[in-house]
Amino acid sequence: MSDDTQDHGGHSGNRRDFLYLSAGAFAGVGGAIALWPFVDSLNPAADVLALSTIEVDVSQVEVGQRVTVKWQGKPVFIDHRTETAIEEARDTPLSDLRDPQTDEARAERPEWLVVIGVCTHLGCVPKGQKPSEARGDWGGWFCPCHASHYDTSGRIRKGPAPLNLLVPPLSFLSDTNIKIG
């Protein structure tokens, strides 16, 4: 019979017993790995991810016409640009731009401009999609909230917005089928 039932075993600071250490480490690693499913369940689920790309059939969009589609919960402006609009966009010197970007970099196929319709100032949806709406001083889009003006390439020209309208990831599956995202 032992009298030594008090603090005993691996608890004292000096004896780092391998068995207790490995038990603790094993349990700890297991615990950390076990936590991952809980955290990951908060990430976008498969059905949400499936909607993270959309395909848009633009065969019915005429020259000079603009359409809006919804992508990842946000409006996306698709502009089938006229020759004039393209020229104006391409002829702009970069020094005129707050957020310098060439039109070529933003619209690989010049007749199609696709931008996310969210003002880079504080997030309102700019006007200009409908023919009856204001387009701002550069014929692009106009944000009614704080008067940001965007040009025919969706670049900020006047007003408080710091950046151009964002261009989403894009690819042309065919001449009339655009994959966004």
């Binding site: 032992s2 030594d4 075993g9 691996g10 068995l19 207790y20 038990a23 349990a27 297991g30």
Partner: peptide
């Protein structure tokens, strides 16, 4: 498999710790 190994290690640890306790 992980849990079986962990149980074995913890059980061994318990036996060791309790070895001199009557």
């Amino acid at each position: 498999i992980f849990l079986i190994i962990l149980s074995a290690i913890l059980y061994a640890g318990k036996r060791k710790m309790w070895a001199n306790v009557d």
